[in-house]
Design a protein around this nucleic acid. Structure first.
Lengths: 245, 245
DNA sequence: GCGCGCCAACTTGCATGCAAGAATAAATGC
DNA sequence: GCATTTATTCTTGCATGCAAGTTGGCGCGC
């Protein structure tokens, strides 16, 4: 077998490009490659340590090296891969320290997002709070049903909405990319830890602060929530000695 | 004059590439282009609204379109330019709303940085605090001498150190790119506003909190400082009707 | 004179060619 | 048998070629 350059993982022969989105931004190959590769990393199709060359990945995606090259530059910028000067591309893992750092960034920014939402006019912030409450309710329901996957999805929906609705595009985008990096670690530990029963309570505290228009309290609630999650996740990772997710 | 594609600004015939850094990361053209273009934007060589094609810029930098293309993708990601699908590249300005958003991000993250530094072991945080005090002293000196440029440089040095020394690489990088965006607006208003005499006091409050190891207070001080700056800058911009810096 | 449509000149997106750098394997001297 | 050097093969970085898309102008019909 000649040019199959994969070196450290069961090699996927092809990578699924995301189904051409119905009416989204016109497809350009760079974004396609970016999304596909990122998903492959997040879903562990490319596990940490996976190493390959641009040609290999380009072949899997059925395109030329150029868009893959540009997508990789972006993914390196965001911390998913590392481009070794003339040796190839390696998928990075997250050390507990990395996760600690990410949580610092997220809690600070989600705090700001919460404060911003709480400072919106009453009609707006009420509408957003209702939406958030919907997600929290979905979490509780999933929790009651013991469905961890659904719980995680509802939790993600809550946080996505928090970031997206704060009327600060830069903040939203930063939170988005940083949150993505946590995905793999959270998924991995989802089945290892007790179901976080009081997440819903913390979400509700944040929602209440927003409803009350108390920016300061919203800030505190959002940050406390993330720090709580970190304090639960990190010891688990360190204890299991999962040094690289 | 035939192919000079500039449409809205006095055209620079060439763009200076940064002097090849002595021993830094090996020069690759993409980074060179990125730095040169970014500097051109920040220093108003490419003012907001400036529009040009990749070929034009590539010619100015004496390289091919490829590295310029990739650098532009990065600059778009960071909000400096907008790539119009098949029509060219336009340099973006900052509206007061943009500046408001940026300050939200920065104050949240610098707060986290301050808290992180304050939580370091005493020896470390003392060393950092001394450095910060040095910058603050330089600010006061420049202020006394009426040298606004020197003041701005010392202020920048203070904030750069704050972000760089917090032991959180992601946070540092995000703060760095976001701060850069403010540069043009701050420079523009530097001569319009009264010299901020109590910046030094606020810096000292932050430094004191770090020395005392009080993360909570450091967080508050850092955020208050940025919000103060915002509250001073924004009304000025709105009043002068500078809708696009 | 006015509106409509076609054409030409630009633009970027992507594929490919070429060369330089880095690692590995081979071959040689000892 | 071992160390050192050399050659081979991979890798990316960048230049360039080509095609598709968009814009603006020119001419034609009315």
């Amino acid at each position: 077998m000649a040019g199959q350059g994969a070196r450290s993982a069961p090699e996927p022969r092809t990578l699924r490009r995301t189904a051409p989105p119905p009416e989204a931004a016109k497809a350009n190959l760079v974004d396609l490659a970016y999304e596909a590769i990122k998903r492959a990393v997040l879903e562990n199709t490319y596990p940490p340590g996976y190493q390959a060359g641009e040609v290999e990945i380009a072949r899997q995606l059925d395109m030329s090296r150029t868009p893959v090259h540009e997508a990789m530059a972006r993914l390196q910028e965001e911390g998913f891969v590392r481009i070794l000067p003339k040796r190839g591309i390696v998928v990075l893992g997250l050390s507990p320290d990395d996760i600690d750092q990410i949580y610092d960034v997220i809690s600070a920014l989600e705090g700001a997002a919460g404060a911003r939402i709480a400072a919106l006019p009453k009609a707006e912030r009420t509408r957003i709070a209702r939406k958030l409450e919907g997600h929290t309710a979905a979490m509780s329901a999933a929790l009651a049903a013991g469905d961890r996957i659904a719980w995680a999805q509802a939790d993600k929906a809550f946080h996505d909405a928090l970031a997206a609705d704060c009327r600060n595009g830069r903040l939203s985008r930063i939170v988005g990319t940083v949150t993505d990096q946590l995905h793999r670690a959270r998924m991995f530990t989802l089945n290892l830890r007790p179901l976080p029963t009081h997440s819903a309570v913390e979400h509700q505290a944040l929602t209440d602060a927003i409803l009350a228009g108390d920016a300061e309290a919203a800030d505190r609630a959002a940050r406390a929530h993330r720090q709580q999650a970190r304090d639960q996740l990190l010891p688990l990772l360190r204890q299991l000695n999962l040094s690289n997710l």
